[in-house]
Design a binder for these strands. Structure first.
Lengths: 347, 347
DNA sequence: TTCATTTACGAAAACGTTATAGTGTTGATA
DNA sequence: TATCAACACTATAACGTTTTCGTAAATGAA
């Protein structure tokens, strides 16, 4: 009924615990006879070594702690599925902690997991952490010899392995595409500057304009408050965007830094009687379900979350398993790809 | 540098390990003086007991294993976030395993976690498990005294706590709403019968028709193959639905058993020149991002995934913490709610 | 026969905790 | 002065492993 242990097998077969352990490991110290007997018994009763005891003994858990700001979030889940894939392949288990964009939850989650439960962290910092700029928990973890891999929302001041999306380049490509399609009044719908990725994507927008000799105009940039993303405030988002479009009727393209902004913009534009894509072209960022199922379907910058997760897990596991030498810290950049759909098609 | 342990504190302060342990627990056996000294030291160097050692000693890990078929999936992530919320409140950690709809991965994931890593499971079985009808892993787990809570995709043959969505009632309400709006030729877009939830929602559709004295017609039912949901086969889905709508021009409403079917249907209908909602009303199932951001936004049956997850975690933790008596198995039904949006508005 | 070597196993320590059961010193009581 | 309790600790076992070291018995060589 209850879990079988070495001790119980030993008692049952009237041998010592050591003999059982060694037999199961096929140690030549034990006679062929005894080995077979023990192995048969263990198999029959489906013996499995206790993971916790092994973790304690080996001082490693073969477990990775992943901390993300949100789980009801397409991009983060793709990353997690990438992490899980390679972790599993390499015999690791994944523990997930959610910060819910809160600094405190991020810290307590890390502290809880750091006390022996895991061998290393993969994490993307919460929005609040970015605002506070308090990274002591990350520093401490690294100083205590617990490897950390940061992804997507990374921190320049922290030295560790990192995996990032090339936000700037992705945004630039998106805008270049719009320019090539003949658009000249390209609006940017973005976040406030303290949101790292928003900032990077904004700079990509600027680079593209610059490269093609188009003047940057503040008038064409809408920076939306973070709070508008919260549950129940979609109305604010809507009206903000609608007002913006109404007061800038000459806009012939929109680059939005995420799917929601892009879809909301498309809806607002439609309400104002603009045809998409003939009168207005739209590009978003993040290839989630929304882009694919929108009408018209949305051209967007795919971030390859799965690859990002895979890479993060590879970096971490490599570091965990090299105990002889410490590989130098790396920052891997995952390239984006522009997925063209109906919202930018010609005609 | 490395992790602080009781032993190290003991050595440092020149007392025994027991004294340190008891001091930290404020045991009256230890003199006030010593207690303060130890606690000060522990605080200064930020001592945290090793979770693994505690787990081994207490034979409980304060960890819940959650196994879901997919993580890039809105509904499942809402459930996980509900689980995580109450788990955290009650001092539990969550480990996530993904079955990716595969029976084998489900089994190995469970076996791996069952060996001491967790105190109980919360899971939704994979599609393949439903097809195979092989539930030995669930039975074994329960027989070994490891509590299991099944959610959403549950198994009648397995005796354990369960949390389910009232699929039938939810579907029925949705269809009743369409009937009340004056629709008489209501189409159903559903899955094949072996998908449990598809079947239940289909029966809700039938109940509604029956209750209002409308004849059920096979002609108005489209059962879509599972494979069409795979990456890259969206085209098949599209053309299947389009053909269906084209050959049934009298349809004035659609009830689809998930968001994707509903959106795809809306798109196809629009392509055929049907106005939504004036000529065709549409209701989906699952209140995900798609419904909210669709154009027109989609009326849908919300499953309250968060509450479902919360309830599942509560059931499990209750069972884990009652060691004196075993509460009888419960099946909690989480009610659905129809969220009305543009796709069914009058006029 | 004696000593060395091999064979086949067992004892014990260790990982970091906690809980139970000692133990030596002090001070009070009979 | 002997006894006893209270005090303030320490030792030990236990959780389930693995691994190093130790050791009887059997074998082989001299």
């Amino acid at each position: 009924m209850q879990k079988l242990t070495l001790k119980k097998i030993a008692r049952e077969l009237d041998v010592s615990i050591s003999t059982v352990s060694k037999s199961l490991k096929d140690s030549p110290e034990i006679s062929e006879d005894t080995r077979q007997k023990v192995k048969a018994f263990a198999k029959l009763y489906n013996y499995r070594p206790n993971t916790i005891a092994l973790s304690l003994k080996n001082r490693k858990t073969k477990t990775i702690g992943v901390i993300i700001p949100e789980i009801v979030h397409h991009f983060f889940t793709t990353v997690v599925s990438g992490i899980e894939k390679v972790a599993n392949e390499k015999g690791y288990t994944v523990i997930i902690g959610l910060s819910n964009e809160s600094f405190d939850k991020e810290v307590t989650n890390m502290e809880k997991l750091a006390n022996g439960s895991i061998d290393g962290f993969i994490l993307s910092v919460s929005r609040e952490t970015q605002l506070k700029k308090d990274y002591h928990h990350l520093k401490e973890s690294i100083d205590h010899g617990m490897p950390v891999v940061l992804f997507d929302r990374t921190i320049p001041e922290i030295e560790c392995d990192k995996v990032v999306v090339d936000d700037t380049q992705g945004a630039k490509n998106a805008v270049l595409k719009l320019i090539s399609s003949g658009c000249t009044n390209i609006a940017l719908i973005t976040t406030e500057d303290h949101v790292n990725v928003g900032k990077l994507r904004t700079s990509g927008y600027q680079h593209a304009l610059e490269e093609r000799g188009i003047d940057f105009s503040d008038r064409l940039v809408l920076k939306l408050k973070d709070e508008f993303n919260e549950e129940g405030l979609e109305g604010q988002l809507n009206s903000g965007i609608e007002l913006f479009l109404r007061s800038n009727p000459d806009i012939d393209a929109i680059f939005a830094v995420n799917e929601k902004y892009a879809l909301t913009a498309m809806k607002a534009a439609r309400a104002l009687g603009k045809q998409i894509p003939s009168e207005l072209k739209v590009v978003g960022f993040t290839d989630g379900v929304l882009s694919k199922y929108a009408t018209p379907s949305l051209t967007t910058v795919s971030q390859h979350g799965i690859q990002l997760g895979e890479k993060a897990a590879e970096l971490l596991i490599r570091r965990l398993e090299e105990d002889d030498y410490e590989p130098p810290y790396q920052t891997v950049v995952v390239e984006t790809r522009l997925i063209e759909r109906e919202s930018t098609s010609q005609g």
